[in-house]
């Protein structure tokens, strides 16, 4: 698998470390309560199809990336910097 890092270009997936669903971007605020945090930490949609997920360019520029990828074909549809995603949100 090759991931097109926005900073480094296309690189072999062995340079990256997988973290999981991009839902982890949206960490609940304390006032949302324990149930929201439980859902955030433990529950996953885990779709067979396109999913948005976090990868870390650990053996590269160390950017955290949001990757849209199809879990049935491993086809990668888009790669963005997680920091950009987060700034848009906040």
């Amino acid at each position: 698998m090759r991931i097109n890092c926005p900073l480094c270009g296309a690189r072999d997936s062995r340079e990256f470390h997988y973290r999981g669903s991009a839902k982890l971007i949206d960490r609940p605020l304390p006032e949302q309560g324990r149930a929201a945090m439980f859902d955030y930490v433990y529950i996953r949609d885990n779709p067979a199809g396109v999913t948005r997920e976090l990868w870390h360019h650990r053996n590269g520029c160390r950017a955290w990336l949001v990757v849209a990828r199809d879990t049935t074909s491993h086809k990668i549809l888009s790669v963005e910097l997680a920091a950009d995603r987060g700034r848009v949100r906040s």
Partner: peptide, 14 residues
């Protein structure tokens, strides 16, 4: 280190 980078880039880039 990876965790701190996660926190900084993913959770609180602001």
């Amino acid at each position: 280190l990876a965790h701190l980078e996660f926190c900084q880039q993913v959770l609180w880039p602001d």
